[in-house]
């Protein structure tokens, strides 16, 4: 595991050049695969915004400020039904509760400066998490992380704006664009699996989400996450006990 925590010059370090341009190029590459997936989802969201009767620029406002894709699809439904602000707060809390766990592995300690750290937490999306959750990201520079997040932000808000502007051209009979979110999470799951090839964890997650869906349909997400975390804790305790006895 690389222990190059300091930014000091390490002669044969894997990331020798910390210049602006190389960092930008790296950030663009990092954001390219996973982050660009945010663009079609943004387009889908933008189309839905104008098809629901709102002005096109609300799509830009929602996507650049809330910047949490899966929440925004739900948020749109809530504001169209004029839901109370308390319901919006509760929904935002439940849908984004998972972000609490992202603090465990997101390399925020690499980001320098208060404002930058502030933006970095603001833009800590599923995509940013997925790209930086691996071991390699422990050595990312501050600038590389920030630009990566900025690019994803741009793809998402740009996609939503594009979709909203195109939305009036797309006939209302065209449905099913919201599948883009499902496709994104499916692809991220496959990539995360390829990283570790650990079969019990996705099976445990699948069991938890099915329990949440059928036993607690109204609290599906928090129930699934709580069960999943509890399951992982139990498994960790079990393997540790096993290894000390072996």
């Amino acid at each position: 595991m690389p222990s190059a925590e300091r930014a000091g010059p390490l002669p044969a370090a894997p990331v020798p050049d910390r210049g602006l341009v190389p960092d930008l190029v790296r950030a663009l590459k990092d954001s390219g695969s996973v982050g660009l997936g945010a663009f079609p989802i943004g387009v889908a969201f933008g189309v839905l915004v104008v098809h629901s009767g709102l002005e096109w620029w609300w799509a830009s406002v929602f996507s650049s400020l809330i910047f949490a894709g899966s929440l925004e699809f739900l948020f749109l439904g809530l504001v169209l039904a004029a839901a109370p602000l308390a319901s919006i707060a509760v929904t935002a809390f439940l849908v984004n509760c998972r972000h609490v766990f992202y603090a465990l592995s997101f390399p925020l300690h690499r980001v320098r400066g208060r404002l930058r750290k502030g933006y970095s937490t603001f833009a800590l999306t599923d995509e940013a998490y997925a790209v930086t959750a691996g071991e390699a990201a422990r050595s990312f520079s501050s600038r590389r992380i920030l630009w990566l997040q900025g690019f994803v932000h741009l793809y998402w808000a740009g996609g939503a704006t594009t979709g909203a502007l195109l939305g009036s051209v797309v006939p209302a009979q065209v449905t099913g664009l919201d599948f883009a979110v499902t496709a994104l999470f499916t692809v991220l799951a496959i990539d995360a699996f390829r990283d570790r090839r650990d079969i019990p964890t996705p099976l445990l997650a699948l069991a938890c989400v099915l329990v949440g869906r059928f036993a607690f349909p109204d609290q599906m997400l928090p129930v699934a996450f709580t069960l999943f975390t509890a399951g992982l804790l139990a498994r960790h305790a079990w393997t540790r006990r096993g290894s000390t006895h072996a």
């Binding site: 959750a133 996705p202 997650a205 999943f228 992982l232």
Partner: peptide
């Protein structure tokens, strides 16, 4: 937790979008 969580989190979110 940081190492094993990502795949499970994504599986749960996929399931959630298919609710």
């Amino acid at each position: 937790l940081g190492a094993v969580m990502p795949v499970g989190v994504m599986v749960i979110l996929t399931g959630y979008t298919l609710r």
